[in-house]
Simulated scan of single mutants.
Amino acid sequence: MNARILPLWARTTGLLEGLAPLVLLLFRLFVAIAFWRAGVVKIDDPTGTHYLFSEEYQVPLLSASAAAFLGTWIELIVPWFLALGLGTRLMAAFLFVYNIIAVISYPALWPKGFWHGLIGSDFADHKAWGLMLLALVAWGAGRWSLDALLGRVFKPRVATDA
């Protein structure tokens, strides 16, 4: 019995590991599109954006104008790096923290209380994005990325003794 199961298990897990580049690409694209769309909404309606940052969001340490400006441009620029897989771990870590600040700064996301939101269904999108970003921090962009391409192009050459 074990003689048949173990090789089958090894082949199956080997095939599933081949999905990693696709999964990491989909994580990058899904999160990048979500953040980029939020940036487009902000830049399309500067008055509404200023209102949100003045009245709804409670961003610590920044004025409403500075937070609106930074939030808009972060959401318009950083997702491109993430989607292309360029500086992925750094960009994913940055957006991970940005996502946490967004959740904390917008109490409307957690109507039943912040702690309920962590385990309940409140701000489910932000939790999914956070987990995908954390996976990208841990595993990088994968083979289908500019990070991987640049790593192959600029791979350090090992000196050999003659």
Rank of each mutant, 00 (worst) to 15 (best):
F94P: 06
I104L: 08
L146V: 08
N99R: 02
G85E: 10
F96I: 11
M132C: 04
L136W: 03
L146I: 10
G117F: 00
A108W: 11
L109W: 06
F81N: 07
W144D: 07
L90V: 15
A135P: 02
M132I: 02
R143C: 07
A93H: 12
L134A: 14
A128S: 14
V137W: 07
A128N: 13
A108H: 14
S145C: 05
F114I: 02
F81K: 09
D122P: 01
V78C: 11
D147G: 05
W73N: 09
W115H: 04
L133T: 11
D125K: 12
G85H: 09
A141G: 14
W139H: 12
F96S: 14
T88D: 02
Y98A: 08
S145P: 05
A138R: 15
L84G: 15
S105G: 08
A128G: 12
H126T: 04
I74R: 01
D147K: 03
A108R: 15
T88Q: 03
L82F: 07
G120D: 02
I100N: 11
K127T: 09
A108I: 13
N99S: 08
I119E: 03
Y106N: 13
K127F: 03
P107C: 09
G113Y: 00
G113W: 00
P111W: 01
W115M: 10
Y106W: 12
P107F: 06
K112L: 10
W110C: 02
D125R: 14
A83P: 10
W110S: 02
L136K: 03
L131P: 00
F81Q: 10
A141T: 07
L118P: 03
M91P: 02
W80Q: 13
V97G: 11
D122N: 02
A93R: 13
M91A: 15
G120C: 03
M91H: 04
R89K: 12
W80E: 10
K127A: 05
W129N: 11
F94R: 08
K112W: 07
L90Q: 12
F94E: 08
W139Q: 13
S121V: 08
W115N: 04
W144I: 11
L131R: 01
V97K: 10
W139L: 15
H126Q: 15
